[in-house]
Structure formats: C-alpha cells, structure tokens
Design a protein around this nucleic acid. Structure first.
Lengths: 134, 134
DNA sequence: GTTGACTCTGTATATACTACAGGGTTTAAA
DNA sequence: TTTAAACCCTGTAGTATATACAGAGTCAAC
C-alpha cells in the first residue's frame, strides 16, 4: 500500500532512517513488489509512529524495542512478566513527566519575568534557577 | 573542589562524557590545578545535572544548549527574545508530557489487564492498542 | 618511596542516524 | 511511445553523541 517515501512523508521520519530501523530489526521487513520495492501497511505506519514518539522522548532503540515487545510477547512471557515489565516502564515514564514538569515550571517563571520592561535579559535573576532541582 | 571523577560519580554521568561535553562547549572548561587536573565547582555540578536530565528527555545537545543559553543571554538578547524562545520550549515540553501521558495510560491498561488469570500474554487484546494515537 | 587509584591526552569504537553514488523503476507529459 | 522527472534499490561514507582504551603523569596512603 505505502512506498518507503510515502511512509516517510506520513510519519515525518527520514526515508533512510526507515531502512535503518529495518536493518536493526526495529520494524519488520515489509513485503516487496515484483520489482523489489518495499510495500508497507497500516501496521508499519502505527509502529513507526510509536517509535518516533518514543525516541523523541529519550527512549533508546533498545528501550523502544522493549516497549514494543510488550505487544507481541510470543507465548514465552507470562502475564506476570509483562506486568512487572510494564510497571517498570510506568515508573520510568512517571519520572520523565516529573522532570519535564520541573523544567516547564522554571520556563514559566522565566517567561513571566520577561514581561517586565527592562531591555536586557542579562539582569534576570530567575534564570539562574533553571539549574535547580526543585 | 571536584575532580572529574567525583563530578561523574555525583551526577551519574560517564567520566568521558564530561570531557566530551567540554570539547563541544556544553559545559565550560573548568579551572585546572597546578598539575593540570580539572577542578569543578557547584556551577558545573548543577549544569551537568540539568544537561543529563534534558538529554534523557529527548532534547538534543543543541536544544539543551538553547535551554541553557536562556540563563546567560549575554546582553544581546532582549527580554522579548527570551520570552518567545521560552514559550516555544514550553510548548515543546507540553507536547512531550502529553505523549508520555498517552503511553503511560496505555501501559496502565496493559498492567491492569495482566491482573487476569490466563497464563500467556499472547492473548492480550489490549496490547495492540499501544500503537494507537489516543 | 612505592603501589594503587586517579587524571591527563589522543585515538579508536559504538550507536543512531543521515547523505550520497550509481543504477533500476514508475509515472506522466510531450 | 519515448523520454524525463521523480522515485526506489543497494552499498557505503559521513555526522552526532557518546564510550572505551592506551600510555604516561599525579596523588594519597601505607
């Protein structure tokens, strides 16, 4: 249904990256046309969208594979296995959300401070706080 | 105050990565002892902690530098500049949080499904939904 | 004052892409 | 129907972001 180029366009993924993901086994090798062109379906589209999102959120290829593997535990994983893996991922994601919210809070302070009238940003005392841990 | 090794230990950053960040200018070159050892202070510690966090959240080195630069707009940026940059970062971060929340929601569904009693995970119908966009 | 842990620099390797070259295929206008 | 643009194929090279290692110097403690 989809050529590699169309898959790239629809996902926003670089066309070469799609081939790369195939070589490292992150997306399955698609069917080929008679002339050898790759032919992708909706499954590839959804999978690639998920991979893109996970990568942009700081998950490595291996972590992303781990998330994807939850969906295809081919009989060798029990529900208990999947559950504990899933819980671990949930904890990790919760931490990421917390970290992002911290940064967002700081940025909001910066933004509202910048509503002031001074010309230069260099005198802004709140900026320093971007480094803090709270 | 801190050697490179101690900075590595306290931040969880690989010791070689610290040198790398120095070569690409992500952290400033620290003072040196008489014998040439790097000597880091609290400023380096906080900056490196922030870098680590930002990188783990999917910000590139350049994006991280952009966030850090907000704190040291050396007179050449107006408050309006800083504000619009900051707002853009806030939007980006909000999107990341949304994406993480979506994934987390799906993982929670998986987790609660796995409380069922069947032995194999391969029959779990919810797993498929990990790929969806909602 | 010697040994073990640590640091220095330079360079090599790994991971995750991204780009390019040389050639075949598809599409659509001339 | 030919032919030119646009696309796909493979292989390979380059870039970004680390990480590891080798050989030599430094520090701390026993």
């Amino acid at each position: 249904m989809l050529t590699r180029g169309k898959l790239a366009t629809q996902t926003g993924c670089n066309i070469e990256t799609i081939r790369y993901y195939e070589t490292i086994g992150l997306i399955p090798a698609p069917a080929r046309t008679a002339s050898g062109y790759r032919s992708y379906g909706d499954e590839h589209l959804r999978r690639l969208n998920f991979i893109q999102r996970a990568r942009s959120l700081g998950f490595s290829s291996e972590q992303t594979r781990g998330l994807l593997d939850l969906t295809e535990a081919g009989g060798n994983k029990t529900r208990a296995d999947v559950k504990s893996l899933t819980e671990a991922h949930i904890d990790e994601i919760s931490q990421k959300i917390k970290d992002l919210q911290k940064i967002k809070k700081r940025l909001r302070q910066i933004s509202s401070f910048c509503d002031g009238s001074a010309k230069s940003a260099s005198t802004c005392p709140i900026l320093e706080s971007l480094f803090d841990d709270n």
